[in-house]
Design a protein around this nucleic acid. Sequence first.
DNA 1: ATAAGCCCCTGTGGGC
DNA 2: TGCCCACAGGGGCTTA
Length: 269
Amino acid sequence: MPELPEVETVRRELVTWLPGRRIVSAARVEAPAGPKYHALERAAGQRIEAVDRRGKFLLLPLSRGDELVIHLGMTGVIAQERPANHLRVMVELSGPKPRRLYFRDPRRFGRFLVVPRGDYRILPTLAAMGPEPLGRDFTLEDFATRLERQAPIKSLIMSQRPVAGVGNIYCDEALWRARIHPLTQARKLSRARVAALRQAIVDVLEASLAAQGTTFSDYRTVGGESGDYLSQLDAYGHAGEPCKRCGARLRRIVVGQRSSHYCPKCQRR
DNA sequence: ATAAGCCCCTGTGGGC
DNA sequence: TGCCCACAGGGGCTTA
């Protein structure tokens, strides 16, 4: 679930208390060893120097040249209280309370691992990630170049390569705002439509960030609160309901194994 | 190199 | 009540 607004909300909470602390221990709990928790034990003894974000990845540079990488997957939640179940990682910290950080992740699609700083060879999506949508590098020129591919625009955006951090909800929302059908071939979009999509992505992410994201079921802030953007969604989850612009009945189709919600009248192929 | 499909997991809700 | 199927904010791997 968590997309850029949700992950950024979590980052803003973590950055208020984690930097400067030393990791006393970091260990898997109720989870098999594997690449999702790669080299986690290396975090022990290192100080957390910052809490950064790239797309949906949280990046915590550590003092001995490593980097703690956290991805929430679909159901990952970071908390200061021990969860009742599905606890995957527990981190002990130096300093004042709270001295523990818990990673709960029922579906185990998330990751919590350590790599040499900036070495993303085992994280191909992160390595090939497009620019941050709320940063200066997300230019029309660059975006248009990255859309010169033969794939449905929905699938291409979801790949994280044209732009970082946009997932299923905000992709549908942005396409609805820009009036682009999810199956439109990316390379066939006019420059004007590419510009409209770029702006729609920026607008919807900023609006959601202001509401601390969207909570369907699992996502929570570190403080345990829900995001409030759910009620402002125009397309995602509204199949069968009238389009707020034209009144036509919104549809749900599957694109790249992911559900896509759109208006058949405003968003023509 | 690129694009499409399958897979990993657990939980929940609807239909019968 | 119970069973089965569909579906869920993601991304990596394999296949052509």
